[in-house]
Amino acid sequence: MRALALITVLMVGGLLFYGLPDFPDWGDPVSPASTHLSPFYIEQGAADTHAPNVVTAVLAYYRGYDTMFEAAVIFSAGLACFFLLRTFQQKSEETRLYRHIPTGVTLRIEEGGKTPAGSEEFEPIDSHWVPYDMIINMTCRLIVPFVQLFALYVIAHGHYSPGGGFQGGVLFGAAIILFAISHDLRSVFRRLQEKAVMFLSAVGVLIYAGTGVVCLVLGGNFLDYSFLAGMLGVDAVMARSHGILIIEIGVGLAVMAVMVMLYYNLSSAGRHDEGL
């Protein structure tokens, strides 16, 4: 296997090196890549979309079709994890574990034993030792809202600064995952159910594709936001700007939801218990 790997690697490497002499120098301002298409984007992008961040303009408008599938890719990944891993079988009821919330003591109940009374004070858990650290717990609780706020800012400010739906969505998802890591999966489920996550991911991408369809219905080509002008009551350029915002929100939703969904399924191997 090693020999095969070496041969393959050398062949691919050799092939890549073979082209190297004809590469333009790194950072060459007159290379074909910098002179053919990109000047158009840089010079026209802001005028067409009111988005000084040219990357956003290209991403969400000129090549919005690509980006839509990008969102679809991430959606498929989330769904694939769900599809592959999720198990709906009930766990066997032989031994159950409970934690006394105020003290953190773990109760183990053998088959036939009674559930502890006063379930307000006890919660079911899945493994003997569950990390439970108040400092981490509280710190994360404090951080999470700020991360979420920042995520919203990143999504909304994608036109003007580095950012956009993907980045913001990941941040938002990270906030939720952070909460999940510092607590456990069950506490996240209480706030954000699996079903809701699924909905959000689908709705997010649907917002994107739906915007495209609306453009199409309004007489334009697919994803041509300028045709939203009439509906939004603004001029064509502004309509594009708004269109970009709408789809960024959709992407943000989808990415956030998928990140969470990936975590849900990967961390608990599809059982949706406490997770890691």
Partner: peptide, 19 residues
């Protein structure tokens, strides 16, 4: 990303912000 680099240029977010 290396392809995109240009010596003496900055990130593609236009200066004259509000377009």
């Amino acid at each position: 990303v290396s392809i995109g680099a240009k010596q003496g240029s900055t990130i593609p977010i236009l200066d004259s912000s509000h377009g």
